[in-house]
Design a protein around this nucleic acid. Structure first.
Lengths: 136, 136
DNA sequence: GCTTGACCTTGACATGATGGGAAGGTGCAC
DNA sequence: GTGCACCTTCCCATCATGTCAAGGTCAAGC
């Protein structure tokens, strides 16, 4: 199976398959006489695994660990759970920061006329850092 | 005022001040005879403006627009509000995606023993893409 | 005056995950 | 045997920021 077909089958772009190989996330693919990479069912499983983990937002480093655990029959599920929970915590923290920013900005936006007049609490906040006080 | 003092005063690192200058976000700083950059009160205001906008998650491109509006006395507050609301929408979309991932992962994690046994629905989901069905 | 240490200068390189493109080789169908 | 789709490697770009290196400058203490 060619890299293009493998990409099609797994949803990982050919570009990224080569990249994952270059950083050692996946083993080096076999080659045809002409140097074309070839992929078998096992490789496809690994690539699909990676794509699903990426879809869940895991970093490459985390995926590296998850792949090792996946291929380790003597693994402890606790190790997997720990990685997943850590990732969940990271995502929640990101959400919290986003929520804070959204909150501030929505508040400012609600007090902005949004018409042709130039006065705007959003710019005032950015300029002075104390629009909150000025406005509420 | 030196770049280091300006950085200290505004919370924008010296590195980033030079960077912002190089990409044309701020005007070129004045120089001493020895080539040191110098900053005045107006520059400090601009840098503080940028830092606050960055703290609210605005991209450099958006900040470029906001700065232009800030310095335009004939601006329409509607233009500012539009940029802010667009940014809020982007952040909300990011939060939505994060929430989805968190939801899936917390669900899987809840069904993982997290002990020394090897069986783990998290890995099963990543491997097969159908843990949801297998589990619930 | 000289040394020292803190600061400045430019420039290059790194991050993380991905995309884009160029230049050249290969495989297959007509 | 030609054309087209695909493959190869390699370089560059993103985005905002940090790090490091090599060298110049300033001010204070001796």
């Amino acid at each position: 199976m060619n890299i293009g077909e493998a990409a099609e089958a797994t949803g990982v772009s050919a570009k990224m398959i080569r990249h994952y190989e270059s950083i050692g996330l996946i083993r080096e693919a076999g080659r045809t006489g002409a140097g074309y990479r070839t992929y078998g069912p096992k490789d496809l499983s690994t690539l699909s695994f990676i794509r699903r983990a990426r879809d869940l937002g895991f970093s490459i480093a985390q995926i590296r660990d998850l792949l090792a655990l996946w291929q380790d029959r003597a693994r402890a599920s606790g190790d997997v759970k720990r990685i997943a929970n850590q990732h969940v915590d990271e995502m929640k923290e990101k959400m919290r920061l986003l929520q804070e920013m959204v909150h501030t900005l929505e508040h400012l936006s609600a007090h902005c006329h949004g018409d042709d007049r130039p006065d705007c609490p959003i710019l005032e906040q950015l300029a002075s850092g104390k629009a909150e006080e000025a406005c509420c």
